[in-house]
Design a binder for these strands. Structure first.
Lengths: 332, 332
DNA sequence: ACTGTTTGTGTAATCGTGTGCACAACATAT
DNA sequence: ATATGTTGTGCACACGATTACACAAACAGT
C-alpha cells in the first residue's frame, strides 16, 4: 500500500484489477449512481489496497468544475487580513474546496498573476486586495463572476460584493476623543489611493465635520508597523497633532510606540490613537487599542453566503453590507 | 474583449477563427516549438482579441505537470509561520507556480484534507506543520516526494528535509540569563507532543544541564497569546520560576504581559522571558523580545532549493541544516 | 408465459491540450 | 538535377476521468 510507487494508478488499470470496466470504477466513487453495492464494496477495497484515488484534474476537465477557489489578497502575513483568511480557508475546506492564494503585494505584475490563476478554471474568486481594480478582476475572471470585497461603487451588474459601513462607529469614536479635549487630528493612510482607504477616511472626516473640525494633517504609510512608527513621528513633531486615526491596527501600534518612545507622549492623556480592523493583537494587554472593528465571523459568513449563491447558480449579483463597531481600549 | 461571455473559448474554436488547426494554436503558446513566426503573431493577436488562454487543467492532464504546490501549514494567521509563508508564496509565484494552502490546525481530518489535495496532482508538497506526521505525508503524497520541514529524524530515503539547529544560540541565551542571576527555569511548550517542540526544549535543557541546572516546571500552551498569558500566570504564581523559555514569540509576549499585569513583575529584572522564531513583531518597540531567531530568508531559500532539485529530477533526497541565532531584546 | 420496469454494467464519446509522426514546401549542397 | 536537410503544418492519439446510451439480466404484475 505505501512504498516507492512512482506513478499513480489509473482508473483503467484498477478496472482490470477489479475485473470491471473503468466506467464502473467511476461509479463506485460517485455517491449517487447506479451500481451494485457488492461491486462498489469490492472496488473500494481494491482501490484502497492499491492507493487509488480519482484524478481531480481529469475529473475537473470533464465536469467543468475544478473545486478550486482563487483568493486574491495583499499579503498572507499581514495580520489585518490574516484572521479573515484563516477563517475563510477553514470554511472552504469544510466544503471540499481548495484555496489558491494570490499574493498581490509583492508580485510585480498582478494582472499576469490573476490571468495565470484564471487558466486553472477556478470555480470562485474572492478579491480581498485593494491593490487590484474591480474592472481588472471582472475582465480577467469573466467566466467566473468574481466575488469582490470592495468599497468601490459597483455599477457592474455581474459581480457580487460586500460593503462595509463604519460611519456610525467612527462617529462614536470621534465623539469620545473630542470630549476628551483633543483638537488636532491627523489621518494616517495605509495606501496612497485605494477605495477602501478613501472610504475609511471619509467616515472619520464626516464625524469631524459634524463637529466643525477637520483633519489637520495626513500621512501615507503601507499598513506596516514601521511605516506607522515613522509617519507618526513626523505627524507628532512637525504637525503637532494630538490625535491620529490610523488605516489599520498595526500602524496604530507603531504610532503608539513612536509617541511613547520618541516623544515621550502617552495615550490617551497626551495623544489619542485609533486603529482599524479589530485584529486579535489589538486586544492584547500590551496594546489595548481603541479600534474601529469589524466582526470577522460575520464578514466571512457573508463571503461564504455569496459563494453559495454563486454555486447554486442563483443569477444576479448580490450585495451585503456589514456594520463596524467601536472597540474601546486605553489608547483613545 | 471584455463582456458577459459565459464560456471560455477553446483551442479548437480559436483554430477555426484563425484558419489553422488546433495543434498550431497549441504551438503558438509553447515558446520553443516549430512554428512560423508570422503564424504565431497572427494567432496571438486573434487570441488576445477573443480572450483566449490555454486551459491549464487540460494542459496539466496532458503534461502530467500541474504547476500546483501544496503548502501544508498549521494556520495562515499565526505570525510564527506567516512570514515564511509570505516569502515562499512570493518565490513560487515568481516561478509561475500556484500555491494551494492546507490549513491543518482547524481541520478535523487532516489526512482527508491531504488526500484531497493529492488528487490534484500537485507537483510539490511542502509540509510546515508539526501536526502531521512525516509518515502520513509520505504515504499520501507518495507520487510527489514531499519536502518536509521537519525536526523528526528522517530515516525515509524518499523525502527531502530541512533541519534547524538552535543548540548554540540557546546556549548563549541561557548563559546570559544565568549570569544575570536567574535560577528557576520553566519551559512553556506550544504543543504537547510534536518533534519540533521536543527538539527546541532539548536545546535549552542541554544548555541548562551544562551548568548543573534543569527546568523546574513545564507547561503546555497552543502557540497563542492567550495560552502564553494563562500558563505564565500559573508558572509564576504556583511554581515561582524566574525565567520562562517559550515555544514561540507570541506566547512569550503573552507571558510578558501576564507577568507585568497580573504579578507586577518586569523583565528582565524580576523575570527573564525568551521567545522563539524571531518574528518581526518581536522586534517592535513595545515588545523588544529576546528570542531564538531563524533567518527567514535563508529558510525559504532552502525550501526553494529543495523544490528546484525536485523539479530538475535530481534523484535522491537532500537535507539542509540551518542554524539559529540569538536576537537580544530587553526581556532577558 | 408475456409484457414492462428496474438494476447493473459495458461501449464509446467527451472535456481541452500537447506532441509524435507524416508530409509538403522550400532551402542548401554536391 | 538529384540528394539532403530544414521548416511549418495537419492528423490522430493520449492524458484520466464522467456520462448518455444501449443492452442483458432479473424481477414484478396480471
Amino acid at each position: 500500500m505505501s512504498g516507492m510507487n512512482r506513478r499513480r494508478i489509473t482508473s483503467k488499470e484498477l478496472a482490470k484489477l477489479a475485473g470491471v470496466s473503468s466506467a464502473t470504477i467511476s461509479r463506485a466513487f460517485s455517491p449517487d449512481s447506479r451500481i451494485g453495492s457488492a461491486t462498489r464494496d469490492r472496488i473500494l477495497a481494491v482501490a484502497r489496497e492499491h492507493g487509488y484515488q480519482p484524478n481531480a484534474i481529469a475529473r475537473s476537465l470533464n465536469n467543468q468544475r475544478s473545486r478550486l477557489v482563487a483568493l486574491v489578497v495583499n499579503a498572507i502575513g499581514n495580520p489585518c487580513e490574516a484572521e479573515e483568511q484563516q477563517l475563510l480557508v477553514h470554511r472552504l475546506q469544510a466544503r471540499q474546496l481548495l484555496p489558491i492564494i494570490l499574493c498581490c503585494a509583492d508580485h510585480s505584475d498582478r494582472l499576469q498573476l490573476m490571468r495565470l490563476a484564471s487558466t486553472y478554471q477556478v470555480d470562485h474568486v474572492v478579491v480581498f486586495s485593494d491593490m487590484v481594480s474591480m474592472q481588472d478582476a471582472v475582465d480577467i475572471f469573466h467566466t467566473t463572476k468574481p466575488i469582490i470585497v470592495s468599497f468601490e461603487p459597483l455599477d457592474n451588474e455581474s459581480v457580487s460584493s460586500i460593503r462595509i459601513d463604519g460611519a456610525e462607529a467612527a462617529d462614536e469614536i470621534i465623539d469620545k476623543i473630542v470630549r476628551d479635549g483633543k483638537k488636532r487630528f491627523a489621518y494616517l493612510s495605509g495606501t496612497n489611493s485605494s477605495w477602501i482607504d478613501k472610504l475609511r477616511r471619509k467616515w472619520f472626516a464626516d464625524a469631524l465635520a459634524k463637529r466643525g473640525l477637520a483633519f489637520e494633517a495626513q500621512a501615507f504609510g503601507d499598513y506596516s508597523y514601521d511605516s506607522g512608527f515613522k509617519e507618526a513621528v513626523l505627524l507628532l513633531h512637525r504637525d503637532k497633532v494630538d490625535a491620529i486615526i490610523c488605516g489599520n491596527d498595526v500602524m496604530a501600534i507603531g504610532a503608539r510606540d513612536a509617541a511613547r518612545r520618541v516623544l515621550g507622549k502617552n495615550t490617551p492623556d497626551d495623544i489619542a490613537i485609533v486603529g482599524q480592523d479589530g485584529i486579535a493583537m489589538a486586544a492584547w494587554d500590551c496594546n489595548d487599542l481603541t479600534t474601529l472593528s469589524l466582526d470577522h465571523v460575520a464578514f466571512i459568513d457573508a463571503v461564504v453566503e455569496l459563494i453559495e449563491r454563486h454555486d447554486a447558480e442563483i443569477e444576479g449579483p448580490h450585495s451585503i453590507t456589514l456594520t463596524c463597531t467601536a472597540r474601546w481600549g486605553s489608547t483613545a
